[in-house]
Computed example of a mutant assay.
Amino acid sequence: MRPLQVGIIGLGRSGRDIHGDVVSRLPELYQLAAVSDPMEERLRRAEQEWGCATYTDYRSLLKHEGLDLVVNASPSHLHVPISLEILESGLHALCEKPLAHRAEEVDLLIAASERTGRRMAVFHQSRYVPGYQQLLQVVRSGVLGRIVQASFRFNQFVRRWDWQTLQEKNGGNLLNAGSHLLDQALQLYGPGIQPDVFCRMDKANSFGDAEDYVKILLTHGSGPVVDLEISSCDAYAGYEYQVQGTRGGLVGTRSELNWRYYKPEEAPHRELVTEPISHADGSPAYCSERLIWHEESWSLPAEEESLIYPSIAAVYYRMLYEHLANGAPLEITLQEARRQLAVTEQCFRQNPDYAIGHRN
């Protein structure tokens, strides 16, 4: 086993603070060999912190001898063309979210990966958020019964004025924070299932022209209604997850969950009554009973809560190493990313004011 040699394109918030940080913390798996960014001050800082080679032009980085993997942390609207160049250069590629503008662009990446024999991955690290993983365990255990609705929230009250508020740069809440929520939410449907979509968008506190409020409802057959909300105008943001089931429910956040449920064998026997229900004295009555509720909870240790995002990035990178070095399955596939982008395309079609880059 040897550390994989890594190059990073782009030293912004994700390139430096997420990818550069996690790669430098996993020396047994990766070695940060080279970085590129057009801003000289970022390169000087990289030289001081990591002692790696630096390039102002990412195409020069792609020629750096000995690279195995290149991380594409360029601005969102450049993700597809630069990822294609990485693959065509004979290197494995890891791309930040959003992977692409459209589902058909993912097909180009899949074809390039197959043609070159190089692996292509997308950084959907939020699949490994502890609260979400615990939610899946509870749902799959069956204690909540059949899931009727699952709600996912990424809400806050915030104003934003950077490039990620611009449609022309693939900005907006749907393709950014929404990438994480959709990746989580779609796991509640079976593999390959493409749900029906209802979506409304708005621009509330953004200084650009991209949306910063998104409401999505997903449905498929008898499966659960999935309710997603990404809002920059929620002054009372609360839970991140809520699940409603036929035997109970769950509510919580990435670091704390509570759920309650009843056991059918402990519930009073009931049969449908078609006549009016009355008390013993003949007065009208409502259906009323006492169920035995079982309540459980889960929480991260306080000292781990502030480390959630570095931790899940490390989990992702360990998984990716096992895939690239040892042939283990890639747990988050391009086909899953394609399904997600097919949903976002429907959202943009229903909201044409926010669809630059998505219009036919």
Rank of each mutant, 00 (worst) to 15 (best):
F152I: 05
W163K: 11
R153E: 01
N176D: 06
R153M: 03
S179L: 05
V158L: 13
Q167W: 06
L174T: 03
L166A: 09
L174K: 05
F157L: 11
L174R: 03
G171K: 03
Q167G: 08
Q184A: 03
D162T: 06
L174P: 00
Q184E: 13
S179R: 05
R153T: 02
A185T: 06
S151E: 12
L186C: 06
S179D: 04
K169R: 15
A185C: 07
R153H: 12
Q156W: 10
Q167D: 09
K169S: 12
A185P: 08
Q187V: 10
W163S: 11
T165A: 07
F154I: 03
R160H: 14
S151C: 09
T165P: 00
W161S: 14
D162V: 02
L181F: 02
L175A: 06
N155P: 07
L182P: 04
L182H: 01
A185H: 04
E168R: 15
W163D: 12
D183H: 07
Q164H: 14
V158F: 13
F154T: 03
D162G: 08
Q167T: 10
N176E: 06
A177P: 00
E168S: 15
G171R: 02
D183V: 00
Q156C: 12
L174M: 10
G171T: 07
S151Y: 04
V158M: 12
N176T: 09
N176C: 05
W163C: 02
R153I: 02
G171V: 06
Q187S: 12
N155Q: 08
A177E: 07
R159T: 15
N173T: 13
G172E: 02
E168G: 05
Q164K: 11
E168L: 11
D162C: 09
W163L: 05
N173W: 00
D162I: 02
H180Y: 08
W163F: 10
F154C: 07
Q164R: 14
N173I: 10
W161I: 01
G178Q: 01
N170Q: 11
Q156G: 09
Q167C: 13
L166Q: 15
W163A: 06
S179W: 08
S179E: 05
W161C: 08
D183M: 07
F157G: 02
N176G: 01
F157C: 10
Q187C: 08
Q167K: 14
N170M: 06
N176K: 09
R153Q: 07
N155S: 10
T165E: 12
S179H: 09
T165L: 05
K169A: 14
A177K: 07
D183P: 01
D162K: 06
Q156K: 13
A185E: 03
R159S: 15
V158R: 11
S151A: 13
D162N: 15
N170A: 08
K169L: 15
G171A: 05
S179K: 04
